[in-house]
Design a binder for these strands. Sequence first.
DNA 1: GCGATCAGTT
DNA 2: CACAACTGATCGC
Length: 438
Amino acid sequence: MEKGLISVDRWTGHSQAYFLTHLHSDHTQGLSSSWAKGPIFCSRLTAKLFPFKFPGFNLSLLRLLPIGTWHSISLVSPSSGSSSTLQVMPIDAHHCPGSVMFLFRGEFGCLLYTGDFRWETTSKRAEIGRTMLLNALKDDVVDILYLDNTYCNPSYAFPSRAIVAQQVIDIIVSHPEHDIIIGIDSLGKEDLLLHISHELKIKIWVWPERLQTMHLLGFHDTFTTKTSLTRVRAVPRYSFSVETLEGLNTMRPTIGIMPSGLPWVVRPLENGDKLFGSLLTSRYNRSKWSGNGGNHTEKPNGNLGSVEKFHKYIYSVPYSDHSCFAEIEDFVKLVLPTNMKGIVSSSSCYVDPLYYFGRLCGAYQSAQSLPHNKRKERVERLLAVNNKNTFRCGASAGLERKRAMTVKVKNSGIHVSRMSALRRKKRGAKIEENDRPN
DNA sequence: GCGATCAGTT
DNA sequence: CACAACTGATCGC
């Protein structure tokens, strides 16, 4: 079976060029310090952060692509030996530092791979990104849009990060005598922390490795590893728990703030436009929260909008680095691709973006009715993408995936996974199964 | 030691 | 219940 000439966020196969959208670990599975299969194309900031994540990596493999400009890459078809030129433009994805989308064009047509992205309409930076994309697309039709469909369901609605950042300020200001703990990952949410620091004129504690990352990002004055300098600390999300907060509160009054992409599901039939979400595990829900009567229902901060207090020490705020449904819709309307695919299929509930946005695709009907779309097949032979979205597997893996295949629920657009819980994790089995003629 | 896979965490 | 992102154990080489 012919392998893809290029790979996006996919590191286990063999390609001639590899593209990295950003440095979160679910996009670098298979990448390591000793990985050396070929050139990696990424943004300048990702390249700067790269050696910190993969010390000892052969940096001569990295190819920096300035954002917003086209670059040509020569590829050679392994089967025919003929060479072709691929053009690629990285575009700011507004997901985390260094994150980009990749716009490709070549003999195969025009592809846009968003990686993880947030498409806010309010900020200056978002406006620049929108203009950049429109300029890049002005002479092209996107044949296939590979879309971050993490929250591709109208149930997912949350405000812009700027609004939520202000909500976080309100929480902190309303607790002047408390220490503040904020859960973050190894990359991302820097803008939130900078906003807090700027508004409240305080430094923010981070753990030592995170301080190094902050320095690499160019933030030299805002962050500290000295706890005595500030009451606001950003801690690893995996060390942020109810138990942690309860332990801290035996020493000093402390509240936790979790900026989370957890589902902020609109429940129109319940409490009007109130937003609900949860950062609590089911274990905790059963064992402690429900047993603690009434505490979580008090609303000491009536003006916090969708902020939800789940625990006497913990606030969850809908600060998401992925696009909400309305933003995905805006994006699709802007790009108007001929066809599209979701790149996230790890959930037990996969929503095909075509269900919601298919009518926006110019050639959607014809693409669906044609038994063989030659152009699409050419495209798919060229491009191998990450394991959330693999189009190519060996024959035996293909058989396995037949068994684990998803089932399309008629008229719902929701594919209910039949994978066992064991096999459910990020197998990327869903997308191409529905594209292949049987 | 390394990569792949799985289990488990918030 | 759910998510994205992450850590850590284990296994085969």
